[in-house]
Every structure is written in C-alpha cells, then in structure tokens.
Design a protein around this nucleic acid. Sequence first.
DNA 1: CGGTTTTGACCTGCGC
DNA 2: GCGCAGGTCAAAACCG
Length: 314
Amino acid sequence: MSNETRDLYNHQYPSSFSLYEMMNLPTSAAPSSYGNTSFDPSSYSFTDCLQSSPAAYESLLQKNFGLSPSSSEVFNSSIDQESNRDVTNDVINGGVSTETATRVSASSSSSEADHPGEVSVKSRRKRELGGNGGEEDQNSKKVGKTKKNEVKKQREPRVSFMTKSEVDHLEDGYRWRKYGQKAVKNSPYPRSYYRCTTQRCNVKKRVERSFQDPTVVITTYESQHNHPIPTNLRGSSAAAAMFSAADLMTPRNFSHDMFRSSAYTTGGAAASALDYGYGQDVNANPSMHQEYHHGGEYELLREIFPSIFFKQEP
DNA sequence: CGGTTTTGACCTGCGC
DNA sequence: GCGCAGGTCAAAACCG
C-alpha cells in the first residue's frame, strides 16, 4: 500500500453515500430519470464500501463522481472486503430494498497458499472417481471439517461493477476461461464464472445480468492479478491497465468496465480509441493514466467519460 | 490439436 | 439433519 493510500485510510468518511449524491441528483428525483433505465440511484448506497476502499471513496467525494446520466454507463461499483457476503447479490437486492444495497462485502484472503482446498478437493474428487472410495474419502471429509472449525475459509477482496452493456462478458484486457455457469435464484439470467488463464494467477470473475434491468451487467472480480496484461490482445491493454488488479483498491479501478462497456454502448469513438489507441503499455504502473494526456484521443475520451476516470494531474 | 465452452454432478456453507 | 443456493470440477463438445 502506498503512503498516500495509507493516509487515506485515516480519513473520516460518511457512513452512507448514495448515487444521488454522487451524481448531484436531487434525492427527490424520479428513479426513472436516470438515463433510459428504471435504475433507482437511491437504492444504491456506498455504505461499507469505502471503509474498505477509502481511496476510491475519497476520489468520489473529491470529484463528486462527475457522473451524469448520459455520460456513463456505470451505475455502481463496490469493493467487498469486510464480510463473506455476496456483493453481487447485495447489489441486486439493493434494488428492491433501500439502503442496504451496495454492501461491499468482504473478504478475506485466500491466496493459493491460503486455500489448499483447491488442491485437496481436486485430489479428493480424483480419488472418488478412481474408485478407492470409502475410507480415504471419509478421512478427507474429516480433514475438511476440522479445518472448518479451525480457520474460517477466507476470500479475496471483491470488487463489483454494474455496467450497462449489450454483451455479458466485457473485455478488460485479460484472458479468461469460463469454468462454470449457474442459474441465479429469482433471476432468469444465469451467472457465469471465469478464471484468469494465466498460470498461477487465481483471479476470478463472475458475470451476471441484473434481472431488474436486463441492460445492466454485474461483474465481480475476486483476487488480484500477479502478472502484466497480455499484450497480444485486441482489447486495449491500457484500458485494462487502468483496472489492473494489482491496483485493485485505487480510484482508477472505477474506470475498468465502465470504460469498456461505455465503448460498447456508445459504439463510436470511444471504442475505437480503446481498441486501437492505447495498446502499448504492458505494465499497469501508477503513472499509466498520464500517458493519456499525450495522445490526441485523450481529450476525446475525457469528453466521453466522467472526470473520475481521468483524474487530472497537477 | 490445443484451447475454450458447455453442462451435469458434486461440494460447501448456511438457515431452518 | 435436511434442503437450498452458491461455487467448482471435469468430461465432452466445440472451435479456430
């Protein structure tokens, strides 16, 4: 953690922060007034969220988010660090009840070393399939139980984004392999599970469509990439770099899928700029965004995306 | 042929 | 203990 980030953790933040505030909308505004959807900003609060990411919160406060109904397709993002609650579900449920919404949950950590479960489960399953069955299986189950008692399974921090997009799987520069899909309770839309294809990188992401607003895609990232962004992809590495999981907790993260999905939904200059303009920098270094200032398209992007995504350097 | 997606089965945690 | 829902596995199918 940088000194700057550490300092931000010492700040005091309001306990609740709705998108109305972030968007400078009057709290009495009709929900339907947000863009062309029925999204209700009042349903989404940043309570808890920024306890886990004060830097991002700080940025929101400073910039007042700079979001306008027409300028961004990103409704919300949240960082889950505090409990084992499911961020995505919280976001969805938040659309129904008020206040609880974007509870960014939490997590814990389970790096490869922290969760040998991945390996043990595999081997157990293999054993079962191998037909040795019986005793060994019971033993492994016992082990699992004792572990459960000793250490509560921990999870990596999660960050979720709500983006308005036609496509479910938004490109972010990294390569993903889908490893599962599940039906979501109370939703006609399934949830897809992706894992980063890079070896020894255990970053996962879940993608699902909001049943309340099918135009909204909810993407939840878990863990952090331990490698640079692949260079040989059509997708902009720069756009992805802005969301490097190595920087998961920085304000810049809020640019990630909004960036990409906006490109999709606006369909024009932004997409071009993203796809062809900034594919050079492999490393998601902190000075990354400065490079945008040098390109002619920076100004164009600035116009398209909210100010928070292009934090201006003094 | 290697990588990716699909999909049913299985595991785990949690609430009742 | 049971049932449910979320999450993961892995074989088979698919694709470039």
